[in-house]
Amino acid sequence: MPVFSSPAFQRVALGAVGAAVAGVGYASMIERNAFTLREATLPVLKPGSSSLRVLHVSDLHMTPGQKLKQAWVRELARLEPDLVVNTGDNLAHPRAVPAVVQALSGLLSRPGLFVFGSNDYFAPVPKNPLKYFDKDHKRVYGAPLPWQDLRAAFAERGWLDLTHVRRDLEVAGIKIATAGVDDPHLQRDRYDTVAGTPNPLADLSIGLTHSPEPRVLDRFAADGYDLVLAGHTHGGQLCLPGFGALVTNCGIDRSRVKGASRWGAHTRLHVSAGLGTSPWAPYRFCCRPEATLLTLVAASPDRPVSDSGRGVSESEAVAR
């Protein structure tokens, strides 16, 4: 009897197919909607500074019908962060601006900073997922999205657009020097427009970019920024236990695909795994959608970067 028609082989094959179907179902129906709040402590402030609570949100990829995600994001306002940082890819649909603004409405009353990503400018399109393994693949852009309307809504509520500008502000008694670039994933970054040492009178300097491309991170680090915040990677989106992310979809290595790390001798990097997915790839595996509450504290030799990596349920997030 040929091995392929043997009962044993057929049982194994059916088991493999069943496991694959179950995995796809879990990734697309359960984990994709298992939103979590991560917490991390970063020692980046000048000695003697009081702590600063920063909520980092990214990659909402919102569509009008995603009511569960919208409700979860609205609850983040109860955390009452000192500062909100949004690193882009808010949209995934031409009529999603009201859904994004309503979901973020409570947070828009807090001090905020933002830059945009490729999926704020262009709608996502279906693509072969294997192309993510080719960093040089030709990018295909979808229809233009109403990013100007989203920018106007954010700015009207007081959030600061850091696209190719430097801004100084004070939050909770902390003087902050900030700068940002447009999305490096689209080759729209023009770092020279913000180049230079941040204000030396600031207690903290923050750089923003959507995609954490090394060429941009190197420039922020060379200028002496304390902290750079980015998104774009989705934490790899599909990860394997014991291995981690398969791809980063940018130039950084897999070990930095999400969470806190160092970039150079001085600069800390935080990459958000984000809260959404493309509508054409609606799944996550071993990589829950997330927002991150960063507690920034004064730097000292005995306070290394820590990232709890612990998921916090919606009810726990609201209670904090």
Results as ranks from 00 to 15, higher is better:
Gln10Lys: 15
Val305Gly: 04
Leu160Asp: 06
Asp218Met: 09
Arg11Asp: 02
His210Met: 05
Leu52Gln: 10
Leu169Cys: 12
Pro94Asp: 05
Lys175Pro: 01
Ser49Glu: 13
Leu294Arg: 03
Val100Asn: 08
Asn90Ser: 15
Asp226Phe: 12
Pro64Phe: 04
Ser272Asp: 05
Thr292Pro: 03
Arg215Ser: 11
Tyr132Gly: 13
Leu169Ile: 14
Ala155Val: 13
Pro241Glu: 10
Gly276Thr: 02
His270Ile: 02
Ala8Pro: 02
Ala123Glu: 11
Lys67Pro: 02
Gly251Met: 09
Pro200Thr: 08
Ser315Arg: 12
Gly112Ala: 08
Gly106Tyr: 05
Thr295Pro: 06
Tyr141Leu: 15
Ala245Phe: 08
Leu275Arg: 04
Leu293Cys: 02
Phe116Gly: 09
Gln10Ser: 09
Ser50Val: 11
Leu296Asn: 12
Arg268Trp: 04
Leu14Pro: 03
Pro64Leu: 05
Ala99His: 04
Thr295Tyr: 03
Gly173Ala: 07
Gly259Ala: 10
Ala281Lys: 08
Ala202Val: 11
Asn90Val: 02
Thr63Ala: 09
Met29Tyr: 06
Met62Pro: 04
Gly276Gln: 09
Ser211His: 01
Pro289Tyr: 08
Leu217Ile: 07
Leu201Pro: 02
Ala177Phe: 08
Pro129His: 04
Pro198Thr: 13
Arg310Pro: 04
Asp223Tyr: 01
Ala202Thr: 10
Asp168Asn: 15
Pro98Cys: 07
Val115Cys: 05
Glu290Phe: 05
Arg215Glu: 13
Leu246Trp: 04
Val73Ser: 10
Ser313Glu: 00
Gly173Asp: 06
Gly173Gln: 11
Ala172Trp: 01
